[in-house]
Design a binder for these strands. Structure first.
Lengths: 117, 117
DNA sequence: GTTCCAGTTCGACACTCATCGATATACAGA
DNA sequence: TCTGTATATCGATGAGTGTCGAACTGGAAC
């Protein structure tokens, strides 16, 4: 465990001695990190993650009235979650008559996915 | 309020008329969604996302003392963020003497990445 | 016009979060 | 032992979140 530490005899942190290899700075800058974190944060709720899952698997655009019965939450709460996803630009929406249709914009998800893999 | 329910039982939405195609259920079940959402939530902060970025790029284990100067936050706050990442099982830690070393566990990130792509 | 209806927004609530300074813990060196 | 250092935890605070019912908005149909 700490054998290698005893090989380092003298001062608290001897000159040229480090507790670890020097660390490079993050490859993602603050702006990228902020953008991707915003997307990740929007996915950081089970209902929103499942919402995105449904919308992604569904080729076309999905009506809110079809989403409501899938989840055990009130309709205003679902609307709130859709608003969060829209604020993160993960989904877009369109109104046709009485109904509102949602669809996934793949780009933000792709940026996050690209960083992860 | 609910008077109209008896009046018009049938045709508020005319037979055969739909607002959209029928929606399949989410492919990810609630347990998967909860697990992945926990990971996504932990990544939903720019500092934590950059922390993971540094740790992933760094082959070995990284000492906390190298992480602190990279970010403009206090040491307790950094420790708090590392604790969040550890709670989400994105990173693990090990103590050697005075120092604590953190490393990435790739599995949770891979699960999220696999779902995203 | 009036009356529904799908969806959004509002107001409130309890809860969680990011942040800090202060304090505690754990260890190394003397 | 005592001193100093690296990291974690505590306590507080202000900001944000998920949730609901109520109210509002804009179309559609009568």
């Amino acid at each position: 465990m700490s054998v290698e530490l005893e090989l380092v005899p003298k001062q608290k942190r001897p000159a040229g001695e480090r507790c670890c290899e020097p660390v490079v700075y993050p490859d993602v800058d603050r702006a990228q990190a902020t953008r991707m974190a915003e997307v990740a944060k929007a996915l950081g709720d089970p209902i929103r993650l499942q919402l995105v899952d449904v919308l992604r698997k569904h080729a076309g655009k999905v009506c809110v009235c079809e989403l409501v019965p899938l989840f055990d939450i009130s309709q205003p709460t679902l609307s709130h979650h859709l608003g969060k996803l829209r604020a993160a630009r993960i989904v877009g929406s369109e109104r046709r008559g009485l109904w509102a249709y949602y669809y996934v914009d793949p780009e933000p998800l792709e940026e996050l996915s690209g960083w992860l893999s």
